[in-house]
Amino acid sequence: MSSEKDLSQLSLDKKVVLETVNLSRYYKRGEQIIKALDNVSVKIYRGEPTAVMGPSGSGKTTFLNLIGLLDKPTSGSILINGQDVTFMSSKQIVDLRRHTIGFIFQFYNLIDVLTARENVELPLLIAGVKKKERVQRTAALLSLVGLSDRVNHLPDELSGGEQQRVAIARALANNPSLILADEPTGDLDSKTGRAVMKILLDSCKERDIGLIVVTHDKDIANLTDRILYLRDGRLIGETRPKS
């Protein structure tokens, strides 16, 4: 609760949800230093879905891991809602994951043993949201992603598109400021992929959420408002497909 308060106090620019300043991540392989990410400085805005593209080994996953606080940078800093989160304690990071960041993965990563409703409810449970509110929010989110009639189905009983919609609902559950999606349509056919992306983009825009989508798929990237290009760990440019 206190860090949530801190976050709101420290929020300087409401529009910018994420900012990286000279973000670098180097690995040592024997004597050789691999620059997985090299001096990347970028700002991500609320309500402006952004895609990150680049060939294999360009640093997309490293970038996502760093801004998702799953990895620590070698240098540089990360600011979420204006707060420097680069070297936060693990407790503060847990708090950020509960309230500020939502994740969507390529292979949905739903909990096998829980139903669609329970999977969406889970982040709310972890965050300690009261039951009445949990039930309401879960129902609303599943309705939003068009799965009101599949709430009691286990992941294995849902199609790939349905599973990813559950994953979107789950990512939205705690009203995050930022959603990080790693190849969200990578395991879906193009039609389903576009449908899922539409739900994701609309939801983020409606709720003024910052969205970063890492993808290989140009068509999917073109659905976003902004595309960042990475190559050999460096940010080499950006485009705005709709403009």
């Binding site: 799953l70 847990v94 994951r97 509960r98 309230h99 990563n109 909990i111 889970l122 972890i126 965050a127």
Partner: peptide
């Protein structure tokens, strides 16, 4: 492993 990873990504702390 994967489930625990997901739960952690959703904000489950060490105690949980």
């Amino acid at each position: 492993k994967r489930e625990i990873g997901i739960l952690k990504a959703m904000g489950m702390n060490r105690t949980q």
